[in-house]
Design a protein around this nucleic acid. Structure first.
Lengths: 343, 343
DNA sequence: CCCGCTCCTGAATGCGTTTTCAGTAAGCGC
DNA sequence: GCGCTTACTGAAAACGCATTCAGGAGCGGG
């Protein structure tokens, strides 16, 4: 009763009593006598035939499975971006091979290699890269032959480290705008919850924030910048460190919403209220932050659009002479987590 | 300067001056004279050779890309489960083809078909199915030839609709336990924020909750059960409906944490406090709910483990005579969103 | 010193499609 | 009715790799 492991085109051709070539053409909508086409289609349906994508890819038909590599599928930031990626993929009948590195650079490179083996026509890298470390070199070495082989690569937030088409949130400008907004609320003493300093995203957000403060004559003491991983617990830990050491600031800027969520928890555990005792601001505007109490002031990035754009970048030919860079700006959204000083 | 589109095994063999067969064996770690093996490996490295996964799959080597279909990549519930799936996939050198149906049953079936074409050795379906509708019939029809062809299917929360290996949260028992916990707090008048009633998950959670109340002599008026999509906005809308129509209950049970988040927002917008004016309970224990204000009382499911188990199910041969069902129980976690009545 | 066995190697085959190429039947104009 | 073009069809090659099969070299035992 066990049917053949797989129904092949040959089975369909035989059932329809035509040649392989004709069956193939009928199934692919090329010109075939209606009479024969119907017979082939009927046979295919009857046998529940599904073309073998591998054979098809081998034989030269373009294949429709792109690769996406992210740091952590679990992260709300990525989830939001992935939403955009998936919508565009779905609209183009593409399948997405998704890999989560869980922030292990070694795995990231291994995944590129696997995606290369799959002959994915495009690879998307989502999440910020390291600035100038051996990992980025290795990544470039891995990507080079892929690009040479006609593969397309598009990235989010890795403009510095990788010279490929990219979607780039205006991290620097966004952080600067946030600095201005906070200064306007009267804040003068700041603390920053920073992510790993080697990440380009951190460099830009931190730099933009600090420079804007400096322009207003406010200096950010390096001791008030605490570093932690880009996670909720990273934010919790960083905020706790700050509190233990004696927090002097009236306002805390977390370079990431997810870290801000951790900061909220740490502050609550220390009996401090937001924004009563200290104002908190984040960056990204992941969906959940508007449902926090208080809703988080943040730099709103068009997360879903970022995903859509990076996928579109990977899907369209680059006709320009240079790599394409799409800069998407963020917008400061003031919510209840930040208050006027003295108010 | 444009290198060959792709370096093939033949190129490597030629460069190493050995036969194709030897090159293949050397690369796959089969017995080959060390001298030759080194030459092949060196040539491969030098040419940046990457085996073509399609050719490999065609030639009969098992291929390592499994398929996962979910309702919405954007949903925190799925993100948490996906975390587990991805960990196990990573540990087994598997690539995951991920498809998000965005709750369109038609797309779900289309994706199964695509995954079938990709000859994925396993397909995972994550998220609850419909009870007994034409979609599930169509799904079964699509899955049948796949299973017959040796494909493996494992699902989460679809035990009724699909007769395949499954991981099954104890929805009914969990909801019953929650009912008991809430009764114990003194609540007698309840409202429920329900998802689409055709979903097995809803049937079980709602049923478990209602039956347990009934057992305690408390009846749940159908008018107090409001239905909405399994989303934050669905919860917001359902809660708002309830409030507009005049909320009589002291406690609201949302069949999903995500819906509870919407309920929080609706309550806040109506100037009601949780749990002062009304207690709220959820289901799932997605990570964010412990950072809500107040932290949400919920039925904690081992989300990541669910993902790990379903992947393991799909990866291991079913040696038993019947389909395997892994029941994972949830545990009521009382947090600050529920209060004693009259306290 | 020869036979037989073991261990490797290389040539050839097959996997399921697409696509080229050649061939055949039909259709058209004269 | 004949020659030419057009429109399909079928046979066969190619895609890149794993693997089977047969042959050859090396080795030990008799």
């Amino acid at each position: 009763m066990q049917p053949r492991a797989h129904v092949t085109l040959e089975d369909v051709a035989r059932a329809a009593d035509v040649s392989l070539a004709t069956a193939s053409r009928a199934l692919n909508g090329m010109r075939v006598t209606p009479h024969l086409r119907d017979r082939v289609l009927a046979a295919a349906a009857q046998l529940a035939y599904t073309p073998n994508a591998h054979a098809r890819a081998l034989a030269g038909a373009s294949h429709r499975t792109v690769g996406v590599i992210c740091h952590d599928v679990t992260d709300p930031y990525f989830a939001a971006v992935a939403g955009g990626v998936m919508r565009v993929a779905g609209a183009n009948d593409l399948l997405v091979m998704l890999a989560s590195t869980f922030r292990d650079p070694e795995r990231e490179i291994a995944y590129v290699s696997m995606l290369r083996a799959e002959r994915a026509p495009a690879i998307l890298l989502i999440g910020s890269g390291f600035e100038d470390t051996r990992w980025e070199r290795a990544m470039e070495a891995e990507l080079k032959p892929y690009l040479d082989g006609g593969g397309r690569v598009a990235v989010v937030s890795r403009h510095r480290s990788l010279k490929v088409d990219s979607v780039l949130p205006e991290n620097r400008a966004g952080a600067a705008a946030m600095a201005r907004a906070l200064l306007e609320l009267g804040h003068r003493r700041f603390a920053v919850l920073s992510g790993p300093r080697a990440l380009t995203t951190v460099i830009d957000r931190l730099g933009g924030f600090r420079d804007e403060l400096a322009a207003a004559g406010v200096t950010l003491d390096p001791a008030d910048v605490v570093e932690g991983p880009f996670t909720r617990d990273g934010g919790y830990q960083a905020m706790t460190d700050l509190l233990t050491r004696g927090l002097d600031a009236t306002c805390v800027f977390a370079v990431t919403d997810v870290m801000a969520i951790g900061a909220y928890a740490a502050l609550r555990d220390h009996g401090l209220s937001v924004p009563g005792d200290v104002s908190v601001a984040g960056f990204d505007d992941i969906p959940i932050v508007r449902d926090l109490t208080p809703p988080l002031t943040t730099v709103a990035l068009p997360l879903r659009e970022i995903g859509e754009k990076v996928m579109e970048l990977a899907l369209t030919e680059n006709t320009t002479r240079r790599r394409r860079i799409l800069r998407l700006s963020g917008e400061v959204v003031l919510r209840a987590s930040t208050a006027k000083v003295g108010a």
